[in-house]
Design a protein around this nucleic acid. Structure first.
Lengths: 345, 345
DNA sequence: TTGTATGCGTTATCAC
DNA sequence: GTGATAACGCATACAA
């Protein structure tokens, strides 16, 4: 590999002048720049990041720590968002997946330190609570899709499951539904709790009769190996006396099960029963017939915005807030029917 | 950050001795090792990768270049497989997503060079042909999920779509099906072509009457923005006179459409119609009722094995083969019915 | 506008 | 076994 000295020799200038050209520093005569650039071209010179880093201490590398990527394919959009921001802003990214294993996580932090990383995105694939403390972390860190109750100073960025679920429920109610089914996501998940609580709040505020509510758990078990009984749950719901006119599902995968259950029973969606999901897991939500109305998890933006906040903190600018929530926009498709005598939204 | 010198001073030894301990070189007295390690602990010393790299020229970093991660969520398992191998073997990985954009790709190669990367995994999210030439690449490279017709020397590792499709078709035929539907994946995709050709070959070899075959295209258009008409196609197939007893789908997403179509028409799977997919896209294949019989794309292994082959080449050991194919194992679930008078497999 | 001296944290070489 | 010294490729500070 050609070094800065080779370029200098070929261009007939000193190392420092080449350095100036490469780093676009001022005070170099245009014709010198030209000569240097020709030499760079000829030699195929590319600056050596390591050597640069030894002196300058700015690595322009961000670390991303992820846990269970294998389980939730779409959440890797968090990583994509972060990478996009990074590359648009001259940063490079090192991603390390721990598989939720503590030893791996420890090794990852060490690797980050070895590479003089400037800051870390601590990403979980499920929205959850992780009780880290800033003081225990060796590098500036932002939690993504998770947050710490132990340390309110620790920056975090999470989806606003609560508001998303409110809007979704509001939407269903606004279309005249009063007899509701709710199939809960694994209660272990923080997002599941928030969604469910929001649903409850809205339903109480709207004065829905509790007797008109059928609430069941669709998934349970440890994260990554849950058992899914939402198909059976949905079927039971549908064959009961006075079945719900709309079923709100904890996420899109449950909604898929509800679809299968309804179709198997010969029910039409949304004519016989309306269904909504959550996540906007596109391979499901867009593929279903009719396409699924749901709330979109802002994975990509989570990663992108996390970088913005993290780097602004590293650069010493105080970030707007320690705890940021990103909206989960309602995605209206065709799976909810407006009941008679109802004003269309 | 503590440096090797700080450790040396605290331990009362020279820099070089610390270096020896850190790198587990021989010829250090055990008690010296002990003293040094205590000092390392106390100072929280972590070796500086950049400084190390300036001297040693071995970065132990691998680069991964990906194209359209956003479109095919599961294919990011390629990256996961590669990362796992890397971390198990003391390597670090830098992933750069180009979004299929040429300018991004050029920038990525440059970034790789700046970081003195040892080798590159050129990963495509769809199985396809990319006509690169080894001589034009600045770093040792292996193509993953794609290959070059332009340069047979260029290493590649791809899924064996051809054999996977053969096995799948064989499986369906072995269960007594003779009237077959085939819904093709986007013919633009190389994998789609291989799968279709294999299907044709098997069907001819088995002496199936061409009149008993209904073959349609389910998806078309540019990669990443295709139009999906497989739902309609499947419905038409099912309402025709003498409908197929089994429908072979180009992939699992099409299979999902076929399921919806069948259920909407009140057909039972697999009693009225058997369905198989391809890919083993688990959010679909496992979620469907009944669960989908399909062939699994070996994404994870592709990434993992690519690293093995690439690094063995970098280390000067000749890799077994330039062009490696990995099997797509048949995943038997419940979506295919054995017709009467048929021996169970 | 350009060049020189020095040092970053580490490893390589060779001497003790 | 251990240590002194040079060298890696570049940036910083300062001199010319």
């Amino acid at each position: 590999m050609a070094s800065i000295k080779d370029v200098a020799r070929l261009a007939g200038v000193s190392d420092k002048t080449v350095s100036r050209v490469v780093n676009r520093e001022p005070n170099v005569r245009p014709e010198t720049i030209e000569r240097v650039e020709v030499a760079i071209q000829q030699l195929g010179y590319v600056p050596n990041h390591a050597a640069r880093l030894v002196r300058s201490r700015r690595s322009r590398i961000l670390g991303i720590l992820t846990d269970l990527v294998s389980v939730t394919p779409y959440s890797s959009d968090i990583v994509r968002g972060a990478q996009d921001w990074a590359h648009q802003n001259g940063y490079t990214v090192i991603v390390i997946n721990t598989n939720g294993n503590t030893a791996n996580e420890k090794a990852a932090w060490r690797t980050f330190q070895e590479h003089s990383i400037e800051g870390v995105l601590y990403v979980t694939m499920y929205h959850r609570i992780v009780d880290l403390k800033a003081a225990e972390l060796p590098l500036p860190t932002i939690m993504v899709n998770c947050k710490s109750n132990a340390d309110p100073e620790l920056m975090s960025i999470t989806p606003d499951d609560c508001n998303g679920a409110r809007e979704l429920t509001d939407y269903v109610l606004a279309r005249g539904h009063r007899r509701l089914g709710y199939i809960r996501l694994n209660p272990v998940l923080f997002g599941a709790q928030e969604r469910y609580r929001a649903f409850q709040d809205v339903v109480v505020e709207a004065g829905i009769d509790p007797k008109d509510l059928t609430i069941k758990i669709g998934m349970s078990g440890a994260v990554g190996q849950e058992v899914d009984h939402s198909f059976q749950v949905a079927q039971k719901m549908l064959i009961q006396e006075n079945p719900p006119t709309a079923i709100i599902c904890g996420n899109d995968e449950i909604a898929l099960q509800a679809y299968m259950a309804a179709l198997t029973l010969g029910r039409k969606i949304p004519d016989d029963v309306s269904i909504v999901g959550y996540d906007d897991f596109k391979t499901v939500s867009r593929a279903l017939k009719p396409a699924l109305t749901t709330a979109a998890l802002p994975y990509y933006d989570l990663g992108y915005q996390a970088c913005v906040n993290l780097v602004s903190k590293i650069d010493g600018q105080p970030p707007p807030l320690a705890q940021v929530k990103l909206p989960c926009p309602l995605v209206v498709r065709q799976s909810v029917r407006a009941l008679d005598e109802t004003v269309q939204l």
